[in-house]
């Protein structure tokens, strides 16, 4: 190991340390001693990550309130950043909150982090084409059974245990903290982008099953059969029609193909 590499490793450990150590490699002077000088970098590291993560997790910030900075500090302490883009250190926050004490005792925190992060990543996900109703109009009736709808690749379905979407909406609108409502059964949120705007909304259970099936490229017949498990025959077809129209209007479907 060369001198430069050793020096950088020792400096890095000093910046990450709980207390500023005295390094023999550093020089102080009458203006400021070496410990004071090194402390600028220690302080800067924590502040920079705190600021960057705070921007990416506005819903979580509103939900946690005064303890938000302490939460971020504990995450940064446990998981130093590895990505060149500081923003991407947010990728591990939801998992940290899900499995680490004391945060894991409140599942809402990990749910909230997951929604914030999904919105952040969908925001600048790869651009994809979308299809509309006119694109499907020319498909012969007999071919619909084999029609595979392909949802946008960036689309995310998130399980949630409380009204995290209310917190995110309030944070974006700079409204007061909403009242937390926990669900008896987990529900799901859909996060996607239409053109340049990120959207999120609750997802009914039948719609979630259909979207998941579409993502697995199951044909239209299979989607209808799945819907029949939730609705009587008289209501399944209107529901399928309504969902399909809603998906197309919302830009959820990127492409289609006919299996045959």
């Amino acid at each position: 190991m060369n001198t430069l590499q050793t020096l950088q490793q020792r400096l890095l450990q000093a910046v990450l340390a709980d207390n500023t150590p005295r390094l023999r490699e550093l020089r102080g002077d009458a203006h400021a001693d070496a410990v004071t000088r090194l402390a600028v970098y220690r302080h800067g590291y924590r502040i920079r990550l705190r600021d960057a993560l705070s921007t990416e997790f506005p819903g979580l910030r509103l939900m946690v309130g005064q303890r938000f900075d302490a939460m971020l500090d504990s995450y940064v302490q446990a998981h130093p950043s590895g990505h060149y883009n500081i923003r991407w250190h947010g990728a591990g926050l939801a998992a940290f909150l899900e499995f680490s004490r004391p945060w894991r005792d409140k599942p809402a925190l990990a749910d909230m982090a997951r929604l914030d992060w999904a919105i952040s990543t969908v925001f600048d996900a790869a651009d994809e084409p979308t299809i509309n109703a006119a694109d499907l109009a020319d498909i012969p009736a007999e071919a619909w059974a084999e029609l595979c709808l392909r949802p946008q690749g960036h689309l995310q379905i998130l399980p949630v245990t409380c009204n995290v979407d209310s917190f995110r909406r309030a944070a974006d609108r700079q409204e007061p903290r909403p009242r937390m409502r926990s669900y008896r059964q987990p529900r799901h949120l859909l996060v996607w982008r239409q053109a340049l705007t990120v959207h999120y909304r609750p997802l009914a259970e039948d719609e979630r099953q259909l979207l998941n099936a579409a993502m697995r490229e199951e044909p239209f017949t299979a989607l209808c059969e799945r819907l029949a498990e939730y609705h009587p025959p008289s209501k399944a077809l209107p529901r399928m029609t309504a969902l399909l129209r809603q998906w197309l209007e919302a830009g959820l479907i990127g492409a289609y193909r006919l299996k045959s």
Binding site: Q8, Q9, L11, V15, Y41, P80, S81
Partner: peptide, 13 residues
């Protein structure tokens, strides 16, 4: 330099 050993300090060291 901005980091070493796979850790990024996000600073201009």
């Amino acid at each position: 330099w901005t980091g070493v050993q796979g850790i990024n300090l996000h600073d201009l060291m």
